[in-house]
């Protein structure tokens, strides 16, 4: 069974903040991490591999330095990795990203299962997974906390909804986006670290996946950013002073005026 895990390198939130005086974005070094949810996707794939045997390929689209992210997951036990990287991919929205990923998955061929994190923490859209599945015309389940592969080659998943949980069965090939409940990511092992260091990570560009320039990157995107700005400061902040009894009374009255239920 061939499994693909899609991962994304994202800026570490610790390094991104707004300067309180100039209201501009401050970057303190440009450290990148693997999107935390994608590590759970990797873990879900590796657990299936442990139980049923599988070949797990990690796939990412990004600048050349995204190779680091791939080597990281190789050191955790992923079998091989592919980096989709080309200037033409820059500025992609979720649709153009899914288009490029779909082309890469097709090129890999004969993929039974795709794992993604539930969303990337930089964009928070949760769109690429479902869009990728739609482009590949395979069923998918989002926000999955438990994955089981049945004997009959079908997938049983437990997904979390706003209302509770749902148990679904999907035929393969399928795509699953996972929550952290699937299990804590394993740490890199010495053996896999050695392998990861030496592993060849192929870089696929536009021509390698057979797409034209107008279908990827900013040109292949439907959405365009027209303005980026600092969020307006909360102008209404108040600090409650005085001894505790006074603070309690002030907060009580404040919440009562705001018509908070239960008061």
């Amino acid at each position: 069974m061939k499994i693909v895990v899609c991962i994304k390198q994202v800026p570490d939130a610790k390094n991104v903040r707004i300067d309180p005086h100039t209201h501009t974005l401050v970057r303190q070094g440009v450290e990148s991490i693997i999107n935390p949810f994608d590590l759970f996707a990797v873990e879900a794939a590796l657990r299936l591999k442990d139980r049923h045997g599988a070949h797990v390929t990690a796939l990412t689209m990004g600048p050349p330095q995204a190779e680091e992210a791939l080597r990281d997951v190789l050191s955790r036990g992923v079998d091989d990795a592919v980096l989709l990287s080309d200037r033409a991919f820059a500025g992609a929205d979720t649709w153009a990203t899914a288009t490029a990923l779909a082309a890469a998955v097709r090129k890999l061929g004969d993929v039974s299962l795709i794992f993604c994190g539930k969303q990337a923490v930089d964009g928070d859209t949760a769109q690429v997974g479902p869009e990728l599945a739609t482009l590949l015309d395979i069923p998918y389940a989002t926000f999955v906390k438990q994955v089981e592969l049945g004997d009959e080659g079908r997938l049983k998943v437990v997904r979390k909804t706003d209302e509770g949980m749902e148990v679904w069965r999907l035929p393969l090939p399928a795509l699953v986006t996972v929550l952290r409940d699937v299990g804590d990511p394993r740490v890199p092992s010495i053996k896999h670290k050695m392998r990861a260091k030496k592993a060849a990570v192929p870089v696929w560009g536009l021509a390698d996946v057979g797409l034209s320039e107008d279908r990827v990157g900013l040109k292949g995107s439907f959405t365009q950013v027209v303005r980026v700005f600092s969020p307006p400061k909360r102008a209404d902040r108040r600090m409650l002073e005085g001894p505790v009894s006074e603070q309690v009374e002030k907060l009580f009255q404040f919440l009562k005026e705001a018509k908070v239920p239960g008061l």
Binding site: A98, T161, F222, T223
Partner: peptide, 22 residues
């Protein structure tokens, strides 16, 4: 919601149009 975030990206992809989340 958990429903909208799950199927609306599929709708956008089927209609081949842009989608902005949240």
């Amino acid at each position: 919601t958990s429903m909208g975030r799950s199927f609306i990206p599929r709708v956008a992809a089927m209609l081949q149009t842009g989608l902005t989340a949240d």
